[in-house]
Amino acid sequence: MSRSLQLLVVLLLAAGCVRGERFRPRYEARRIVEAQLGCPEVEVSVVPRSPYRDEPLDDRRLDLVAWGCGHVARLRCSPFGTVGGACEADPTYEAPERPAAIVKVRGRYASLHGVAQRERIVIDGAEVVRHGGARAIAIPVSPGPARWEIETHPVHQRIEHYTTRSERRIGDRVYTRTELHERVVREPGVGCGQRFTLSPAPGAIYRVALDVQAPGHCEVYCAREVPTGAGVQLAACEGFGPAP
């Protein structure tokens, strides 16, 4: 019996040493959501990147949706995170089921810096990230007051150099190899942001512009589109006010 037990222990140890632990976002997301919801029947799906997250900075995270027991959870999982801590709640905005108004948002820049402009629009805690560009983004919103935040950062790009070192032992001698690598790193620069509240009226279309005069100096403007027979007129923006 002792011999068979020894064999069993050796087999289990050998199996336990089998590597191949790779990142597994669906497994992680399911485990997290099952624990948080107390729901044993959670389904998970990796979904395409939301159009509300057009990220100019490096972002290799995966977007997942988990659902079960009548709940839906959205997560973002980093492929380089540690097991168990690689997934976090996805704050990306979602269009309401019954959007009542449209808010068009864009940044207007006196001068451009960096390789891109990262615009982040936060609506009651849910965020839209986009490449700042010449065109606005039109966001369907729910009626009623909401807290808004718009901020923009120039994105700077630089080449980062780093070295890796490896050792190889052949016989009694140790050979050391040092390699020089480079990679492109994108970082946000000095930005500017504004907070306000907006209470859209049902059926209305608004324009919100963040005018950036210089790094760290910006103002936000709001107008309401009023359709006319000849096109669109701009009117005062009701329900637009400072953040509390």
């Binding site: 632990e21 790779r22 597994r24 976002p25 669906r26 497994y27 399911r30 389904e43 998970v44 799906s45 990796v46 979904v47 939301s50 159009p51 509300y52 949706v65 659902w67 839906v72 959205r74 979602e94 269009a95 089921e97 959007p99 449209i102 068009k104 864009r106 010449a134 065109r135 606005a136 983004i137 039109a138 966001i139 369907p140 324009r207 589109e225």
Partner: peptide, 24 residues
């Protein structure tokens, strides 16, 4: 610059296919 169509996106589970765990 303001002549843009609304961007509508919702992650609706009814339209998603459950995927098995990738490991295990």
């Amino acid at each position: 610059a303001w002549a843009v169509a609304p961007v509508v996106h919702r992650a609706d589970p009814d339209t998603l296919a459950p995927q098995p765990d990738e490991r295990g």
